[in-house]
């Protein structure tokens, strides 16, 4: 308890700084995340979002390495696939070399428009391919410096892209079995996203 004290304090302080930053950016309808009565609801919503983001269908392309991952065991992508300069592979081994605008169920290759790896700033894993804890992912997602400059509204829009939606219709593996999907359905994910944004995108420490 004694030793936890300063850590907690530091956490609150950091959160306050982040929140002030967020508050100053998000004026108007987005309430201050530190003081809003919606904060507990926002954090609960975040946990739902995190359960999706940490699912292999999402996190496999939010790596901290120079390669994507595959499968529910999140193994390194086979066949020497690499990230490349813009997250779309290298000239002769692009994401699009196999992944096209839709799932190829007859051959087991998933696909969706704009298939690519999230930039390194959006990594949700550490260098050893371990999933980052909820708070760390939350900070990454809510920080425009890391999330590609997305504010709350833009984030909601991002979650409506075909690539994100793909996680709920990921197609068949090459043995004909269905790929697993995130633990909550897409509609619930979007409700949670809106709640979290409404609540000022709060993060636990």
């Amino acid at each position: 308890m004694m030793r936890l004290g300063p850590t907690l304090l530091l956490g609150v302080l950091l959160l306050a700084i982040v929140s002030i930053g967020a508050a100053s950016r998000e004026q108007g309808d987005t309430p201050d995340r530190e003081t809003t009565p919606n904060r507990p609801a926002g954090l609960a919503a975040w946990q739902k979002i995190y359960s999706v983001m940490s699912h292999p269908r999402c996190i496999n392309c939010h790596t901290a390495s120079d390669y994507p991952e595959q499968g529910d065991d999140r193994h390194r992508h086979l066949f020497n696939v690499v990230r490349g300069p813009d997250g779309k592979g290298v000239p002769a081994l692009q994401c699009a070399t196999c992944h096209r605008q839709a799932n190829a169920d007859s051959t087991g290759v998933p696909g969706a428009p704009d298939w690519h790896l999230a930039p390194l700033s959006m990594r949700w894993q550490d260098a050893a391919d371990r999933i980052l804890p909820s708070s760390a992912v939350c900070k990454t997602v809510s920080d425009p410096a890391k999330n590609g400059g997305l504010d709350g509204a833009a984030l909601i829009k991002h979650h409506q892209t075909e690539l994100v939606k793909w996680a709920w219709k990921p197609g068949l593996r090459n043995d004909g079995s269905a790929r697993s999907v995130p633990p909550i359905d897409y509609e619930e994910f979007m409700v949670a996203t809106r709640e979290w944004v409404q609540a000022g995108m709060p993060c636990t420490k």
Partner: peptide, 13 residues
Amino acid sequence: GVPTRSCVLPISL
């Protein structure tokens, strides 16, 4: 123009 593994690309795509 994209190098493509034709063994996994259904003709429909």
